[in-house]
Amino acid sequence: MYRRSFLKGLLWFISARIFSRNGVTRAIASTNPDTTATTHANGKSIIKGYDPTRHRYAMGIDVDKCIGCNRCVEACTVENDVPPEPFFTRTWVERYVIKKDKSVHVENISNGSDGPKERLEEADILRSFFVPKLCNQCENPPCVQVCPVGATFSTEDGVVLIDSERCIGCGYCIQACPYGARYLHPKTRTADKCTFCYHRIVKGMLPACVEVCPTGARVFGDLKNRASRLVRFERMNKIHVLKPHLNTHPKVYYADLDGEVR
């Protein structure tokens, strides 16, 4: 009993020292691995030296910086063994062309086809831009709500994962996702989607798509860390999320998003 309250106090102390946080956590974790296991009843941490309760991951997309080069999509495919077929994907980039007659033309530039379907006359274009899409890692995820066996769930650090060994492949989550972020993996026959490269981020690395983005259009960070790039991104930009009326509370934040984007 005494030990527990001591650890609690210790943790409180650490969280108060928010600025030098990472260093302290690591130091504590290496000497006393038990301290990181705050919420696990068995008193053991799932990931060594990593405390999920102290992180909350999110992504920012700077629409004005995206050049539609598809590096992110290719990196994701490699990093996560995403099927090569263009109709299964964890992330993709959309091109929006709004013509002067206000008609909107959208295409997925990540499906391996060469160039736009129709060459657009430049003089007709009112505005045009690229929008990267991925799983929004919602705070209120409809996919988690509908999964009949609880195979998909939100982690404590705010990522929605899928248990590929328990998913029965019913496809209800695919129907429930408003963003089209999920697909049924043709090999495992279970649902699959973006995990924010969970295996990378818990090691302090960036998701593969963010790592390779040449223009910094994708910003990744920890909402619980005031020094993270994402928090700065949120402070410096007007933020919008996709389909806010569905009350999913996405954690992929778009800066300078056009109203035509759905």
Binding site: F87, F88, T89, W92, E107, I174, Y179, G180, Y183, L184
Partner: peptide
Amino acid sequence: FIYPNELE
């Protein structure tokens, strides 16, 4: 336009 995963 459809989202890529919506084809199937």
